Simulated scan of single mutants.
Amino acid sequence: MDKDDKMFDLMTKMYADLKQGQENMRKELSSKIDSIDKKVDKTNITIENDIKPKIEVLFDGYKQNSDKLDRIEKQVSKHDEFIIRRIK
């Protein structure tokens, strides 16, 4: 085997190793992307089914408290007017 044949064999082996490394990286990357997709799906499901309803309930409670405070403020305002008239 002459020097050129050895060089060709070495380059062929290096090329095969490089292709195998690329394929391994491609498989690993694909696996990691699939894992991330599953985690994102799980997070979205948690947000839609668990967190979003709780936020809506909190907002409804806030709205009810705000409405109640508005009614109380109107009643206090009526009493203020009555008290001011009585003082004058």
Rank of each mutant, 00 (worst) to 15 (best):
R26C: 01
Q20P: 00
N65G: 07
D41S: 13
L29P: 00
D2K: 06
E23G: 07
A16S: 07
I33S: 08
M7R: 06
D4I: 05
Y62E: 02
D50F: 02
D37Q: 15
M11I: 12
K42T: 12
K32T: 04
D70P: 01
L10S: 11
D67C: 06
I83M: 13
K32L: 10
F8S: 02
K13T: 12
S66G: 10
K42S: 14
Y15E: 04
D34Y: 12
I87A: 11
D50T: 09
M1R: 07
M14D: 03
D4H: 06
D41H: 11
K32F: 11
N49Q: 15
D80A: 04
N49C: 11
V76S: 03
P53H: 07
K13S: 08
R71T: 10
I87Y: 10
I33P: 02
S35T: 13
D67N: 13
K88H: 08
I87M: 15
L29K: 05
S66Y: 08
K54P: 00
D80M: 14
K63M: 10
T46G: 06
P53R: 03
I83E: 06
D67A: 13
I47Y: 13
Y15G: 04
K88P: 01
I72D: 11
Q64G: 02
I84E: 05
K32S: 08
I72L: 10
S30E: 14
N49W: 08
N44P: 01
E81G: 01
K39S: 15
K39I: 09
D50V: 09
